[in-house]
C-alpha cells in the first residue's frame, strides 16, 4: 500500500498504488487521514496505479467522501482501470463521487 501526495493551495492530489482490499484497507484509511489537512477543499484521488479494489477499499473511499462533505470539501476520483470502474458503477459510486478519465480532466473540472 503506497500513497503519495502533492498539495497545490487547497487542492490535494493523492496517488494510491497496489491493492485496496480487506488486508490493507485500514492502512489505506490511515494513510489518507494523515495526508488530508483541514484546509484541503478538494481531494483528487488518482487511482491509476491501483490494480484492484474490493468492497473494503470502496468503504474507505465512501468514508473519505462523507468526511470531506461534512466540512463542504469534496472528493474527485480519476484514472480508474476498466474492471474497477465497473465495480464503482455497480456500487452506485459514480452517482455520488465525480469520476474523471485522468488527472488533467479532474483538475480541469475544478477550474
Amino acid at each position: 500500500m503506497e500513497i503519495s501526495t502533492e498539495r497545490e493551495g487547497s487542492l490535494l492530489v493523492a496517488r494510491a498504488g497496489g491493492r485496496l482490499d480487506s488486508i490493507n484497507a485500514r492502512e489505506f484509511d490511515d494513510a489518507l487521514k494523515s495526508a488530508i489537512s483541514e484546509s484541503d477543499q478538494v481531494l483528487i484521488m488518482d487511482l491509476e496505479k491501483v490494480s484492484y479494489v474490493s468492497s473494503a477499499g470502496l468503504r474507505v473511499i465512501l468514508l473519505t467522501a462523507k468526511t470531506l462533505q461534512q466540512r463542504s470539501a469534496k472528493l474527485l476520483i480519476c484514472s480508474l482501470a476498466e474492471p474497477i470502474r465497473e465495480v464503482f458503477e455497480i456500487s452506485g459510486f459514480d452517482k455520488i463521487i465525480p469520476i474523471h478519465a485522468d488527472l488533467a480532466a479532474a483538475r480541469a473540472s475544478i477550474g
Binding site: A65, K66, V87, K95
Partner: peptide
C-alpha cells in the same frame, strides 16, 4: 442514495 444518506458497508454481497 445520495452521498449524505449513503450507509457505509453492505456492498460485498451486493457486488
Amino acid at each position: 442514495a445520495n452521498l449524505e444518506d449513503r450507509p457505509i458497508g453492505g456492498l460485498g454481497v451486493y457486488l
